[in-house]
């Protein structure tokens, strides 16, 4: 009886120990997001009371959610990929050029997007995993290469007028029960774009994969301690390669979703997206050192980041520079929190 009791006491102790890293960061993020959004609802009113404002944030950031998921994946294995913004720009430019000049169909353009993403992921993954080059250097080169290629493909920004594509871009999925009555007394449905559905699917699939599959757990093992992962018989190189490949694939899909949202090709598209993706992952509780992270946290991280940007612009600080400064400040704060948590652990 006594023994049983002590065993029972040990279990919650273990649980509370588990709380420290990932979950603590995740809880901080969720709380900050809820407080921020509630605060905006109470003090700013304006749009924040309408559910559509929330859906608009989702619509605008579906691509960011997808690319951030890929980024988290790489960061969990202890790497980083700053080429995602460039890949997104390259994907939208290539798809735009294909759809407009070749009169091609939408399905092939999707294949192009996935192909570009996979190509970047495979090359960078090979260099990082098998040749053991620093991920940052590799993806920095990848970023500049993608940005340069974008202008080589086409220099001037332009809108796509392909009919099938425009129809797809305009597709709206109504969310039941979330609509509002407008000034004329008409009921306006709340809607999301296709990209949001894709983003949510990606989040759910990756969450399940990371949580309950062997391959998913391998990512954490490799990121946590490469040496012991190797000792456990995990194929470290393959796992790191896979992470970069998936990140590239998700950047390709994210690029297509981005393209679907903006409907144009431009060399300046998605500038700074890699930064936002890294910031979202970090805010969502993914540790830069690897081994710790949560896709759901990344999702909340994107939402927090975009909500703060919305708040900043709705209190009138809408000059372009404030967005950059707030994102950087937020990232800085979360990085320091992480660093403090890590140093306490050691």
């Amino acid at each position: 009886m006594v023994k049983l009791k002590s065993a029972g006491a040990a279990v919650p102790l273990n649980r509370s120990k588990k709380m420290t890293d990932s979950n603590l960061l995740l809880i901080i993020t969720v709380v900050i997001f809820v407080v921020m959004y509630a605060g905006a609802m109470i003090f700013l009113k304006k749009g924040f009371l309408k559910p559509q404002t929330f859906f608009n944030i989702m619509n605008a950031n579906a691509a960011l959610i997808i690319t951030s998921c890929g980024m988290s994946l790489v960061m969990i294995t202890g790497g980083i990929d700053i080429s995602v913004g460039g890949v997104v720009a390259l994907v939208s430019m290539c798809c735009a050029v294909y759809l407009d000049y070749q009169g091609g169909n939408v399905f092939v353009s999707l294949l192009i997007a996935v192909g570009i993403g996979l190509a970047f992921g495979a090359v960078q993954g090979y260099l990082v995993a098998y040749l053991d080059i620093q991920p940052f250097i590799v993806s920095l080169a990848g970023m500049f290469f993608a940005r340069g290629m974008t202008t080589i493909v086409h220099t001037a920004p332009f809108n796509v007028e392909n009919e099938a594509f425009v129809a797809l871009k305009g597709t709206r999925i109504n969310v039941p029960g979330m609509g509002t009555v407008n000034k004329l007394g008409k009921y306006v449905n709340a809607y999301v774009e296709i990209g949001v559905i894709v983003a949510i699917l990606v989040v759910i699939i990756l969450f399940c994969v990371l949580k309950w599959t062997k391959a998913g757990r391998n990512f954490y093992a490799v990121g946590g301690n490469r040496q012991s992962a190797l000792m456990l018989g995990i194929n470290v190189k393959q796992t790191r390669f896979l992470a970069h490949l998936l990140c590239g694939l998700l950047a390709g899909i994210g690029g297509y979703v981005y393209f679907l949202h903006v409907g144009s090709g431009s060399a300046s598209h998605a500038s700074g997206m890699e930064m936002n993706a890294i910031a979202s992952s970090i805010i969502g509780g993914t540790l830069l050192t690897g081994g710790v992270g949560n896709i759901f946290g990344t999702f909340v991280g994107v939402l927090s980041l975009s909500t703060i940007q919305n708040i900043v612009s709705s209190i009138g600080l809408d000059q372009a520079w404030w967005t950059g400064i707030t994102v950087a400040a937020m990232l800085c704060v979360f990085l320091i929190i992480q660093s403090v948590i890590l140093s306490r652990k050691h």
């Binding site: 250097i137 290469f145 340069g148 220099t155």
Partner: peptide, 15 residues
Amino acid sequence: DALPAYKAAVVILLV
């Protein structure tokens, strides 16, 4: 604007 692409290729080659 296209310069970075070439330089990136050089970096990759070097590393």
